[in-house]
Lab assay of single mutants.
Amino acid sequence: MSSSSWLLLSLVAVTAAQSTIEEQAKTFLDKFNHEAEDLFYQSSLASWNYNTNITEENVQNMNNAGDKWSAFLKEQSTLAQMYPLQEIQNLTVKLQLQALQQNGSSVLSEDKSKRLNTILNTMSTIYSTGKVCNPDNPQECLLLEPGLNEIMANSLDYNERLWAWESWRSEVGKQLRPLYEEYVVLKNEMARANHYEDYGDYWRGDYEVNGVDGYDYSRGQLIEDVEHTFEEIKPLYEHLHAYVRAKLMNAYPSYISPIGCLPAHLLGDMWGRFWTNLYSLTVPFGQKPNIDVTDAMVDQAWDAQRIFKEAEKFFVSVGLPNMTQGFWENSMLTDPGNVQKAVCHPTAWDLGKGDFRILMCTKVTMDDFLTAHHEMGHIQYDMAYAAQPFLLRNGANEGFHEAVGEIMSLSAATPKHLKSIGLLSPDFQEDNETEINFLLKQALTIVGTLPFTYMLEKWRWMVFKGEIPKDQWMKKWWEMKREIVGVVEPVPHDETYCDPASLFHVSNDYSF
Rank of each mutant, 00 (worst) to 15 (best):
K74M: 04
I21Y: 13
E37I: 13
V59Y: 04
K68Q: 10
I54E: 11
D30C: 12
I21T: 08
F28W: 13
L29P: 06
A71V: 05
M82W: 11
N61L: 03
A71E: 06
N61A: 06
E35S: 15
M82N: 10
T20C: 04
A25Y: 14
K74T: 08
Q102K: 04
D38R: 14
Q102S: 03
Q96L: 11
P84E: 09
T27N: 05
Q98A: 05
K68R: 03
L79E: 15
K68M: 11
F40Y: 09
D67H: 04
Q96V: 13
T20Y: 13
L73F: 09
E57R: 08
I21D: 13
L39F: 05
D38C: 14
N64H: 08
A65M: 02
N61S: 07
V93R: 12
L95H: 03
M62W: 12
V59K: 05
K74R: 04
E37T: 12
L29W: 14
L39M: 03
W69E: 11
E57A: 04
A25Q: 14
K74Y: 03
Y83R: 14
I54M: 10
F72D: 13
N49V: 02
L29E: 10
E75M: 01
K31L: 12
S19R: 07
T20Q: 10
D38Q: 14
S19W: 01
Y50T: 11
E56W: 03
D38S: 14
Q98R: 06
L45T: 10
K26R: 00
Q96M: 10
Q96G: 12
L91E: 06
V59E: 07
N51H: 04
E35I: 06
F72V: 12
N90D: 01
F40V: 10
Q24F: 15
W48R: 12
W69H: 12
A25W: 14
N49E: 00
A46F: 12
Y50K: 11
T92A: 00
L73D: 12
D67A: 03
Q102R: 11
L45A: 14
E35W: 11
K74G: 03
N51W: 05
Y41H: 15
A71P: 13
E23M: 01
N51Y: 05
Y41I: 15
Q42S: 13
K26M: 06
V93P: 00
A46T: 12
E35V: 00
Q42V: 00
Q96F: 13
F72P: 09
Q60M: 03
D38W: 14
Q42L: 00
L29I: 12
Q42M: 00
D38V: 15
L29Q: 13
Q42P: 15
Q76M: 00
N64C: 07
W69Y: 09
I54H: 11
Q96E: 08
H34R: 14
L73I: 07
V93E: 13
Q98N: 03
Y41P: 15
Q76P: 13
I54V: 04
Q89Y: 02
I21E: 12
K31E: 15
E23P: 09
W69C: 00
E35Q: 02
P84A: 10
H34F: 15
W48C: 09
Y41C: 14
E56D: 05
L45Y: 12
L45V: 11
A25D: 14
N51C: 07
V59H: 01
T20R: 10
N90Y: 00
W48S: 09
Q42N: 14
Q96Y: 08
E22A: 11
L91W: 02
Q96A: 12
L29H: 12
L91H: 10
L95Q: 03
L79R: 01
W48H: 06
K68G: 11
N90C: 00
W48T: 10
K31Y: 01
D30W: 14
N61E: 01
E35T: 14
N90R: 00
W69S: 05
D30N: 12
T27I: 06
E37N: 14
L79G: 12
F40D: 01
F72C: 11
K26D: 00
I21S: 11
E23K: 05
V93F: 11
E35K: 13
Q98C: 02
A46C: 08
N64L: 03
A71D: 06
W69P: 12
Q24L: 14
K26V: 01
L79T: 00
A46H: 10
A65T: 12
I54F: 11
H34V: 00
N51Q: 09
S19L: 10
S19I: 01
Q42G: 11
K74L: 05
V93D: 12
E22Q: 01
M62P: 13
A46P: 14
L73G: 10
M82E: 14
K74P: 14
Q102Y: 09
N63G: 07
E57Q: 06
L95K: 01
V93M: 13
Q89T: 04
K26Y: 11
D67V: 04
E22D: 08
L73H: 09
Q102V: 02
L79N: 04
N49G: 00
K74A: 08
K31H: 10
Q42I: 00
Y83S: 14
L45I: 04
N90I: 00
F40C: 03
D38A: 15
Q98W: 02
T92Y: 00
E57C: 02
T92D: 00
Y50N: 12
M62A: 09
